[in-house]
Structure formats: structure tokens, C-alpha cells
Lab assay of single mutants.
Amino acid sequence: TFVALYDYESRTETDLSFKKGERLQIVNNTEGDWWLAHSLTTGQTGYIPSNYVAP
């Protein structure tokens, strides 16, 4: 799992909003700078900017 370093507000319907400190499970990280992730807090799935999270 990864932890959010910053808050992120989604800009498209495929993005995932999250708050700093939220735990995220990475589903697919082969898309370059945008990873498909599942929030362990909200249960939602969407794309996140990879530079906003850390292991």
C-alpha cells in the first residue's frame, strides 16, 4: 500500500480524490505518471498522480 503525501482533488471523472495520509492500494502502475489506485479509506477506485504518494 501507498500513503498520500498531499490532498488531491479529482479533475476528471476517472481521477480519484484523496486526502493526505490516506492509504491507497495500487491496482496498475504501468500508465506512466498516473496510476490506477483503490482507496482503502473510501473504497473508490480511480487514477492518481504517482508523485502524490509514497510507499
Rank of each mutant, 00 (worst) to 15 (best):
T1G: 07
T1A: 10
T1H: 13
T1Q: 12
T1N: 11
T1P: 08
F2D: 01
F2I: 05
F2K: 02
F2Q: 04
V3S: 04
V3W: 06
V3N: 04
V3K: 04
V3I: 15
V3C: 08
V3E: 10
A4C: 08
A4S: 05
A4W: 01
L5Q: 06
L5M: 09
L5K: 06
Y6V: 08
D7L: 01
D7Y: 02
D7A: 05
D7H: 04
D7P: 05
Y8D: 00
Y8S: 02
Y8E: 01
E9I: 11
E9F: 10
E9K: 08
S10P: 09
S10K: 12
S10L: 03
S10R: 08
S10T: 06
R11D: 12
T12K: 13
T12P: 02
E13Y: 07
E13P: 13
T14F: 14
T14I: 11
T14D: 12
T14G: 15
T14Y: 14
T14M: 12
D15E: 15
D15G: 14
D15S: 07
D15A: 07
D15F: 09
L16K: 02
S17H: 05
S17E: 06
F18D: 00
F18A: 02
K19Y: 06
K19E: 06
K19A: 07
K20C: 07
K20M: 08
G21L: 03
G21W: 04
G21C: 07
G21P: 00
G21H: 05
G21M: 03
E22S: 03
E22D: 14
E22T: 05
R23W: 14
L24G: 00
Q25K: 13
Q25A: 11
Q25M: 14
Q25I: 15
I26V: 12
I26C: 05
I26K: 06
V27Q: 09
V27R: 07
V27I: 15
V27G: 05
V27N: 06
V27D: 07
V27A: 07
N28F: 09
N28C: 12
N28Y: 08
N28Q: 11
N28A: 13
N29D: 14
N29K: 14
N29L: 13
N29P: 14
N29G: 14
T30S: 13
T30L: 12
T30K: 12
T30V: 11
E31R: 13
E31V: 12
E31W: 12
G32M: 11
G32W: 09
G32S: 13
G32H: 12
G32D: 12
D33G: 13
D33C: 13
D33M: 11
D33T: 10
D33F: 15
W34F: 11
W34P: 06
W34L: 09
W34N: 06
W35D: 01
W35E: 01
W35T: 04
W35V: 09
W35K: 04
L36V: 08
L36C: 11
L36H: 04
A37P: 00
A37C: 03
A37S: 02
A37R: 00
A37Q: 00
H38P: 00
H38W: 09
H38Y: 15
H38I: 15
H38S: 10
H38E: 11
S39L: 05
S39G: 02
L40C: 13
L40R: 05
T41Y: 09
T41N: 11
T41D: 15
T42Q: 04
T42W: 02
T42E: 02
T42A: 02
T42R: 04
G43F: 07
G43Y: 05
G43H: 14
G43P: 01
G43V: 02
Q44V: 07
Q44Y: 09
T45Y: 10
T45R: 11
T45C: 12
T45S: 10
T45N: 06
T45Q: 09
T45A: 07
T45I: 12
T45G: 05
G46R: 01
G46E: 00
Y47M: 11
Y47V: 05
Y47A: 03
Y47W: 15
I48Q: 00
I48P: 00
I48F: 03
I48A: 03
I48R: 00
I48H: 00
P49I: 02
P49H: 07
P49F: 05
P49L: 06
P49Y: 05
S50V: 08
S50G: 08
S50Q: 07
S50M: 08
S50A: 14
S50R: 12
N51P: 05
N51I: 09
N51E: 12
Y52I: 08
Y52K: 07
Y52W: 08
V53L: 08
V53C: 04
V53E: 02
V53F: 07
A54S: 12
A54Y: 10
A54E: 15
P55N: 08
P55Y: 09
P55H: 09
P55V: 10
